[in-house]
């Protein structure tokens, strides 16, 4: 298993002011899986993503990712883990404004120490002609594709996506989802966090959260749909 979460809890604060963001999480994700984590705002889905990506630490339980128990890892090991194992795609892209599109992609390779060719990765996301543009010269969809390309350039096995279509229109969002689906097909584990139930229709599995607990985990209701059939 690429991702293994066992009895995981995450609490913020102490005493009467303590807030439980995750509770009793059991989750297994393997290579090639496209998993959508679904839930309303405040359900704990982003916290789950952050715990898997080692941006946050679990209060209890076991989180083993790619064979590494990140609940016991040191600070230095967590940095290495993020560099070599996971890669993030954010809702608001978080591209480096001082780097061109191609350079942002190369940054992913540089950070992970991978040998990915930025031009090739850019071409794979359909931005071969936008390589020398700076982020502020790109549309929102183009920026998100650059963000995906940056994540791909790391060649890390796990793709963690936090509302990747949240700032995009439907058509652009669909293009982004197709790109992510391709990555799962290529053998990566793709974890997409969203509140958009429609997106969950294209997933291999849908993990639904409510109040920090997994309330369902299985294939989408009504079966897996093609991206072209999605509407929102």
């Amino acid at each position: 298993m690429l991702i293994e979460m066992k009895d995981v809890a995450k609490r913020y604060g102490e005493g009467p002011l303590a807030v439980t963001a995750l509770d009793d999480i059991e989750l297994l994700v393997d290579r090639g899986e496209f998993v959508v984590v679904l839930g309303p705002s405040g359900s704990g889905k982003t916290t789950l993503l952050n715990v898997v990506g080692a941006l946050d630490t679990a209060s209890d339980g076991l989180v083993r990712v790619n064979g590494v128990d990140i609940t016991r890892a040191s600070r230095r090991e967590l940095f290495d883990f993020r560099a070599r194992t996971v890669c993030f795609i954010f809702q608001s892209f978080n591209l480096f404004p001082g780097l061109t599109a191609a350079e942002n992609v190369q940054f992913g390779a540089d950070a992970a120490g991978s040998d990915a060719d930025a031009s090739e990765v850019m071409a794979s996301v359909g931005l071969a002609d936008k390589m020398d543009r700076f982020p502020h010269e790109l549309s929102g969809g183009e920026q998100q594709r650059v963000a995906i390309a940056r994540a791909l350039a790391t060649k890390n096995p796990i793709l963690l996506c936090d509302e990747p279509t949240g700032e995009l229109d439907f058509r652009t969002g669909v293009q982004i989802l197709e790109l992510l689906q391709d990555q799962a097909a290529a053998g990566r584990a793709v974890l997409v966090v969203t509140h958009n139930r429609e997106i969950s229709r294209m997933a291999d599995r849908v993990v639904e959260l409510s109040n920090g607990r997994i309330v369902s985990d299985g294939p989408p209701v009504g079966g897996k749909a093609a991206v072209a059939d999605l509407h929102w």
Binding site: F96, G98, L99, E103, F107, D110, M131, E137
Partner: peptide, 16 residues
């Protein structure tokens, strides 16, 4: 900054 024919950099950390 304006896009154009930017020179390829060997390491993005060095230009950032």
């Amino acid at each position: 900054l304006r896009g154009g024919k930017a020179r390829r950099v060997r390491n993005t950390f060095s230009v950032l």
